[in-house]
Amino acid sequence: MALNAEQEVVRGRSSAGAPPQTSYTRKKRFNSKTALTMLAFMAPAAIFVGIFTYYPMISGSQMAFRNWNLNDLSDTSWVGWGNFRTLFENPEFGTIVRNTIVWVVGSLVPQVVIGFALALFLKRKFKFRGAYQAFIFFPWAVSGFLIGMLFRWMFNAEFGVVNDLLMKVGIIHSPVPWLAEPGFAMTAIIIANIWYGVTFFAIMILAALQSVSDEMYEAAAIDGAGKIRTFFSITLPAISVTLGLTILLRIIWIFNFPDIIWAMTGGGPADQTHIITTYMIKITQKGDYGQASALGLIVVFTLMLFAAFYLMAVRPRKENR
């Protein structure tokens, strides 16, 4: 779902500074007849998104300040910050926040590192590169929920293939109860998420790498720069903006991605692997839409704040003029 946003960033970068010389389109002036056509063309999209996305979203946001339980709709009065207070006073809230951070950081860092390495290796053409990319693409065709199920089966304590392989190699000597113990369960769900996300980074970084001109590498080679020096002085700076923004949107996306956890552990054992969004599902299923919406708003504001700080921190520094 967040893919589009990422794409937008990549494109935004290319068109922001310079005039869009790569685009064939001249944005044109138009008369009233054209304006009417435009309106007619936009209308279906606007109506659908308005009715089925924006209306429920806005309507859901105000529920955060009401007592709104599906099981008892006799009293849906305004409760101010009541739902937020209930959340903050919940002893589990700390665990959930901590898990969310572990989930995001633990998934993101390996995704970036492995994805980056993969992209560097794929940059140069080789035989079967196309076929290789198509195979590597495979996780994308699978839903998050199914990925969760695949890994739940592989991490099965008794008949799971992960334990079997680890024991064959001799890393462990007795089966690990992967999904029954909080620490192991957290590791397992993060491994599943890394597996899912590496391809995406590889593809985005590869695209960015291919946009760096060969002349820059040639110039560096002439200046006698080694591989490592070239990487840090040419490659990294050239793709840093794309990389930074891709990472930001990916963070937002992972934050909002409960599917794998929901399928693998359902937040268990004993609610120890809940992140904010899986907890939100749990509350929703209990019918407490007020509290769920409050949690949703917390997510939105946290992410907005984070995005603002992040963008300030990674914004390319202005060169001295």
């Binding site: 967040a2 589009n4 998104v49 996305t53 924006y54 429920p56 979203m57 839409y289 769920a292 949703g296």
Partner: peptide
């Protein structure tokens, strides 16, 4: 507005929907 729909957790909308 289109981009924003991608960033907000969908569960906020689930109840009203």
């Amino acid at each position: 507005a289109f981009l924003l729909t991608q960033m907000i957790p969908g569960f906020i909308a689930l109840g009203p929907l």
